[in-house]
């Protein structure tokens, strides 16, 4: 929709140098900015300092951690490519199972069974090619796992190292958002945000995105998505991962009660991983269509420039 360079046009030139206050306005601090009362001012500086260094570092650390955790997770899953509910794995009652089945002609086909319904997933799940193109039994294919070949020990090494990085990063971010009030200021949806949710969903569906001052803050769907990922999905995937630890189950038996058993926890861990994939796909799509370079730059340098309101949608209230 929007041409990316359109959003870059308002980037400050020499003129803005003098307008830009020496102290950048921290995001959100200008909620009562006079724009609303004063007559429309000439296009003032559109730059906003949106992401503090700490937030940017935490973000990019997650960009490193998530693909590694996901792919090494698939490597670990491949050691027993089936999911169950409850405490134990009754082999005849999986929720999901990926199998390589040899047909009468001697060929190996990948069969994925979900709630008892078999699907042919040859090439992707259950059976997929190795480097030489020869098909063999495998849960997730080689291109999706870390390491590519079946190597559980190394998959676990990758997974647990980056799990620590991810957890520490998440805890520091949570502490920061509480201490700096980032959570309340920018992330948690407010009452008035929630009232606009219908309109926001409609706008997103029609790819209409806020411009001008309205773009200075996250919209309600962004707030729900970010808060949900950081404070619900993140803890969920960590806690279900920890529930798979026999030692931590002894130390905190409540984990087993909470998730309904170790195998349930493993299944929820898997679903949470795919929720992360879904979130990331939508996140990257939204970043791309609402001004890729502006968004990327804001997460690298901290500076975001408000999109021009030329194409703004109708305000009804």
């Amino acid at each position: 929709m929007e041409e990316p360079n359109e959003t870059e046009r308002p980037l400050p030139d020499s003129k803005s140098e003098e307008i830009t206050p020496a102290t950048p306005i921290p995001s959100g601090a200008d909620r009562t900015a006079p724009e609303a009362v004063e007559p429309p001012a000439p296009p003032a500086d559109r730059r906003r300092f949106r992401h503090p260094l700490f937030v940017r570092l935490a973000h990019w650390l997650n960009v490193v951690c998530l693909p590694i955790l996901l792919m090494s997770g698939f490597q670990i899953f491949n050691a027993h490519p089936a999911l169950y509910w409850g405490e134990r794995s009754d082999r005849d009652r999986p929720i999901l199972a990926m199998k390589g089945v040899r047909t009468e002609s001697g060929e190996i086909r990948g069969v994925t069974t979900l709630f008892g319904h078999p699907f042919d997933t040859t090439g992707l799940f259950g059976a997929s090619p190795d480097d030489s193109g020869k098909r063999y039994r495998r849960g997730f294919p080689e291109w999706a796992t870390l390491p590519a070949h079946q190597w559980l020990a190394m998959g676990r090494r990758w997974h647990f190292f980056f799990a620590w990085v991810f957890v520490i990063n998440g805890l520091l971010f949570a502490a920061y958002s509480f201490a700096s009030r980032h959570l309340w200021r920018d992330l948690l949806p407010r009452q008035e945000d929630l009232r606009k949710i219908g309109r926001s969903i409609r706008d997103h569906l029609f790819f209409r995105h806020p411009a001008g001052e309205e773009a200075a803050h996250y919209n309600v769907l962004q707030k729900i998505a970010y808060t949900g990922v950081v404070f619900v999905l993140g803890p969920l995937i960590v806690l279900t991962g920890l529930t798979m630890s026999p030692n931590l189950d002894a130390a905190f038996p409540g984990l087993l009660t909470l998730f309904g058993g170790r195998q349930s926890a493993r299944t929820i861990h898997f679903i949470a991983a795919f929720t992360f994939i879904g979130y990331t796909l939508v996140h990257v799509l939204m970043v791309a269509i609402t001004g890729l370079w502006n968004n990327l730059r804001s997460m690298i340098t901290g500076w975001y420039s408000l999109p021009e309101s030329g194409e703004k949608h109708e305000e009804t209230n």
Partner: peptide, 24 residues
């Protein structure tokens, strides 16, 4: 380098697990 996480895991798990905590 990656394996250094194992020592952290062991120490932290042992630290937060009572010596006689019983498996369910």
């Amino acid at each position: 380098f990656l394996s250094s996480a194992e020592g952290v895991t062991r120490r932290v798990q042992r630290l937060i697990t009572p010596r006689k905590a019983m498996a369910r």
